[in-house]
């Protein structure tokens, strides 16, 4: 693999990490990748006392920012909201002179218990994942960042070990490609989930 051109910062937010099979598998799959910094917010700030300057420095030294978290009540766990509120300061991340994050890339990596079918306008949850992530999309836009479709693992309670491994491998594949710049933003935007892009790419590569 060539040298990573896009340093990646994974902001990992999970209050019950020790009980999440899927997140353990995902984290394990990517933790050792070069150019990837895994930053576990609940482990670093159990008291919610986020060190803003430290976070800013981490953001400044990366090109791609990933918010990896489970979907709780159709949103992120509380600490991520706290992080967004405190770190993305006016005059630094947005507003006049707030260009620190300009042209960086942001995306969500989501795990949800409900299956993909249930997150449809005619499904049990009425809204699609994309719609539920609108606040993140707009936050990224406000900070002049490029927002990508999410990478999503759903139906997490019913995953077999093989499926778990497959999702983990796919996630690693995603980070490798993002990291070495092997993607076109316009092309990615055509997919609801980055999973679909990766699967398609896979089939395309091995005809």
């Amino acid at each position: 693999m060539s040298d990573p051109v896009n340093p990646i910062l994974i902001l990992f937010i999970h209050p019950r990490f020790e009980q999440s099979r899927i997140n353990r598998a995902l984290v394990r799959a990517v933790a050792d990748l070069p150019g990837v910094t895994l930053h576990d917010l609940y482990e670093n700030y159990p008291d919610f006392n986020i060190q803003v300057e430290r976070e800013k420095a981490l953001l400044a030294s990366s090109q791609i920012v990933i918010w990896q978290h489970p979907l709780y009540m159709y949103g992120a766990p509380a600490l991520l909201k706290q992080w967004l509120d405190l770190v993305l300061e006016f005059g630094w991340a947005h507003g006049s002179g707030g260009d620190a994050l300009k042209d960086k890339i942001a995306l969500n990596v989501i795990t949800s218990g409900g299956a993909r079918e249930s997150y449809q306008n005619n499904g049990r949850n009425h809204f699609t994942i994309g719609e539920l992530l609108a606040p993140f999309h707009q936050t990224a836009s406000l900070c002049k960042m490029t927002y990508l479709p999410p990478f999503v693992v759903q139906g997490t309670y019913l995953l077999t070990d093989q499926q778990l491994d497959r999702h983990a491998a796919l996630y690693r594949n995603l980070l490798e490609r993002l990291s070495r710049g092997d993607f076109q933003v316009e092309a990615l935007r055509r997919f609801a989930f980055l999973n679909d892009w990766l699967e398609q790419g896979r089939e395309g590569q091995t005809p």
């Binding site: 803003v52 967004l84 300061e89 006016f90 005059g91």
Partner: peptide
């Protein structure tokens, strides 16, 4: 330096 500490909503900052 961090008014959002006392005022949770970042978009309430007077600059915005």
């Amino acid at each position: 330096a961090n008014p959002s500490l006392n005022d949770h909503a970042w978009d309430n900052h007077r600059g915005v």
